[in-house]
Design a protein around this nucleic acid. Structure first.
Length: 125
RNA sequence: UCAGACGGCCGGACGGCCGCGGAAGGAAACUUUCGAGGAAAGUCCGGGCUCCAUGGAGGCAAGGCGCCGGGUAACGCCCGGCCGGAUCGCCCGGUUUGCGGACGGUCCGAGGGAAAGCGCCGCAGAGAACGAACCGCCUUCUGCGGGAGGUAAGGGUGAAAAGGUGCGGUAAGAGCGCACCGCUCGUCCGGCGACGGAUGAGGCAUGGCAAGCCCCGCCUGGAGCAAUGCCGAAUAGGGAUCGCGCGUUCUUCGGAACAGGGGCGCCUCCGCUCCGAGCGGUCCGGGUAGGCAGCUAGAGGCGAUGCGCAAGCAUCGUCCCAGAUGAAUGGCCGUCCCUUCUCCGGAAGGACAGAACCCGGCUUACAGGCCGUCUGACGCG
C-alpha cells in the first residue's frame, strides 16, 4: 500500500526535509495557496522540532524521471533562496509541483513563491 | 562532391559566482578531491554474491536450447566458417521474352530430423498427395448429345502441381531410352569439423509446414540486496530476582475453621459454586520503529608489446572512476558550437533519457555530428 503510493507520487526533501508519509498528509491538509507552477501547503500548527521543514510532491503524471528530478531541484533551489526570509519558522511545508515547474522562468518562480508565502501568512489560522 | 544501405564512434565545449551528496584531513571554522548513461530503460537471457533445499546413480515429467569450429566465468551472446535464400555484376551454355550453370560483391536465415507416426495446407483449382485427368491430345465406340480407354507434352489455378532442358521415341505421351544438370546410395580424396571435390551405381513416385504435436541430442534445484548478518529505543506483553504487602485463628506447613467479595433473574434466609491478589525497583531474552554492515578495486578503465583473419587472450606499465536511501548534479552569468524564428537589433532552445548489490549480453528509444565499407549519379585524370 505504502509502496504503491510511493511509486505513484515520488517525493523529495530539503532544508530540513519531510520524510514521513504522515507528515506529508498533515501538511497537505492544512493551509493551501496556488501559483502557476506549484501549489504550496502548510501545516496547521508548528511541529515539535521547531525547525522549518519542506517536502516536495511530484506525481508521475507530471513527466518521466528526468523531468521529475529537474522539477525537484528547481523548486529546492527556489526554496533555498526565499524561505529563510519569508517562511514562518517551525512549520511544515509541502510543494506540489505542476507541469510548468520544469520550464517556468526561474525569476518568476521566486516571485511566485514570495507571493504565495505572503498569502499563507495572511490567511486566518 | 552528392544520395542510399550497412558497421563503428561521439553525443554540446570552456570559465566564473552561489548551493547539494560521498571520501580524506582538521579540535573547529574550513580545505582538498570525486560525483549518472550508452542506453543508467525494458527486466528478456547468462553469471557473481546471499539464504533455503539437497546422500549417490538412473528413469519420468516440465521448461529451454539446436549447422560446424573458436571466444568466454557463462550464455539463447560474440567471431570465423559451412550450407541455403534474396539481389547486383560478370562469364558460359543455350536462346534471343524467358531459362540453366559457374564465379564474385552486399544483405538475410530459431539452420537437427518430414521414405517413425499423427495433424494442417485458407482462396483459387479437376486435383494439395493410399501417385492426381478440368480443358486439351491420342485410340476406339456411337443413336453425333456423348461414352470407354490411354496420356502428366501443352492450357488454366495457386505461395507450392509430382526432377529440369534438349534429342530420340510414340497412336498421343511418359526416365520409356540417351546427353548434360539435379537427386539418392557407395567408394576414394581434402578438411579438426559443418561440408566440399572426384568417381561409380541407381532412371530416381514418395510436395511444403516441426516459432503444429512429435522424434533425437544436449542443458536445467528454489528464491532474491525489501537477499542476508549485526545493533536496537518508546509502549505493550513474557521470564528471573529484591523490597513491601498478601483478613483472623490454629497448624504436623500439606491444610482446616471462621470471616470477606462475586455468581445462581430480583430481596431475605439457606444451600451450591467461584475468587482472594498486588505494587514498586533491578536484570534477562524475543522483537517493532530506527540505525549499521552488505555497498563498491571490479571477469575494472587506459596505454604499450606479443599471439590470433577475428571475437579475444597473455605480459608489462599506469589510474582509482558515484555509492545516495522521501534518494546527491541545481540556480544565475559570460564566450563559443549547432537548430528554429526574426521587425536583422536580437529572441527561444540543445536528441533519447537519471545509477539504487555488481558484472557479460540482448532488445527498445535517440536531435545532431564524425569515420569506414559497398552501391548509384555527376565531375576530373
Amino acid at each position: 500500500m505504502e509502496n504503491t503510493e510511493r511509486e505513484r507520487t515520488e517525493r523529495a526533501l530539503r532544508l530540513e526535509s519531510l520524510k514521513k508519509r504522515r507528515d506529508f498528509l498533515a501538511a497537505q491538509s492544512g493551509l493551501r495557496a496556488h501559483s502557476p507552477a506549484f501549489v504550496l501547503t502548510r501545516s496547521k500548527s508548528a511541529n515539535q522540532s521547531g525547525e522549518t521543514r519542506v517536502g516536495f510532491t511530484v506525481t508521475r503524471r507530471i513527466g518521466n524521471a528526468v523531468v521529475r528530478n529537474r522539477i525537484k531541484r528547481r523548486l529546492r533551489a527556489a526554496v533555498g533562496a526565499v524561505f529563510s526570509e519569508n517562511a514562518a519558522a517551525g512549520f511544515d511545508y509541502v510543494l506540489i509541483a505542476r507541469r510548468s515547474a520544469a520550464t517556468r522562468n526561474f525569476a518568476s518562480l521566486l516571485d511566485d513563491m514570495k507571493r504565495v508565502l505572503l498569502r499563507l501568512s495572511a490567511l486566518p489560522k
